[in-house]
């Protein structure tokens, strides 16, 4: 199925619990490098929870438990003694609602690199410019980098959050319904951007818009009640789904 591409993330028999509730059941999934993998499924199916197991953001929630393995470049990120902070430098994340910090546009992008010890002003300037260009935002904000990030539009804020994630130079980008708070025009821009970004990044995107999954992704995984029902090339999932439940979902019979 994924013969032609290198696997960036390999998930082996992953289970996830909130207290006694099992949110993810025996997930086995391979995420190819420098491709876009979309996670689809009805609300509450575990796709966002799954996304957050990939950079261990679920660690922040009390009373959760993980069983199984997530291998990134062959290393299990749940092994004892692993430095979560180092792990997250490698994996950028974009959230559902744009969450710029109440700082200037420049400081939002420079925040990560600065925290990681880069002090040289010229180096920072270059990172900020490169990241904003990569996030297709540079031309719109280059004249007002010192203005508050809270004053730009929602779509611009989301691209700023993408730039902020790119600035720490990750190789994986996780996106949790990144356009659900945006209007169609802003959504189209972000989708264009996501397609451009796959040249350099392995992207995993959660979306509840099947059209979006069909438009942007190379591979699609369908989640239902904490399980991966089907996973494969997006074209195949949408045109010739193997499982009846997948077909029911993408044809809109439930969800």
């Amino acid at each position: 199925m994924l013969q032609n591409s290198k696997e960036k993330i390999v998930i082996k028999d992953l289970n996830f619990f909130y207290n006694d509730f099992q949110a993810l059941k025996n997930i086995d999934l391979k995420v190819p490098a420098e491709k876009i993998t979309a996670l689809i499924g009805p609300s509450g199916c575990g796709k966002s929870t799954f996304l957050r197991t990939l950079n261990r953001m679920n660690d922040l929630i009390d009373c959760t438990k993980v069983k199984g393995e997530v291998l990134i470049d062959g290393h299990n990120i749940y092994q004892k003694g692993l430095d979560v902070v180092e792990l997250r430098k490698q994996i950028g994340m974009v959230f559902q609602d744009p969450n710029p910090f109440p700082k200037s546009i420049y400081d939002n992008v420079a925040y990560g690199p600065k925290a990681h010890g880069i002090k040289n002003k010229e180096v920072l300037d270059q990172i900020v410019e490169d990241s904003l260009k990569a996030a297709a935002l540079w031309d719109e904000v280059k004249d007002r980098l010192d203005k508050s990030a809270m004053d730009i539009s929602g779509g611009q804020q989301q691209r700023l959050c993408i730039a902020r994630a790119l600035a720490v130079n990750p190789d994986i980008l996780l996106m949790d319904e990144p356009t659900s708070a945006l209007d169609p025009i802003a959504t189209a821009k972000i989708e264009e951007l996501i397609k451009d970004l796959k040249e350099d990044y392995t992207i995993v995107i959660v979306t509840h818009s099947m059209q979006q999954a069909a438009r942007v992704s190379d591979y699609t995984a369908f989640f239902l009640l904490g399980e991966v029902i089907e996973h494969g090339p997006t074209e195949k999932i949408f045109e010739r789904p193997a499982d009846e439940r997948t077909e029911d979902y993408i044809t809109g019979r439930f969800g």
């Binding site: 950079n55 953001m57 922040l60 902070v85 180092e86 792990l87 997250r88 430098k89 490698q90 994996i91 950028g92 994340m93 959230f95 609602d97 969450n99 710029p100 910090f101 109440p102 925040y111 990560g112 925290a115 990681h116 959050c161 902020r164 994630a165 720490v168």
Partner: peptide, 14 residues
């Protein structure tokens, strides 16, 4: 807001 914390932590910031 928690989004300030999560946004920062997700960047690999301590």
């Amino acid at each position: 807001p928690n989004s300030y914390r999560h946004g920062s932590l997700a960047l690999g910031v301590s």
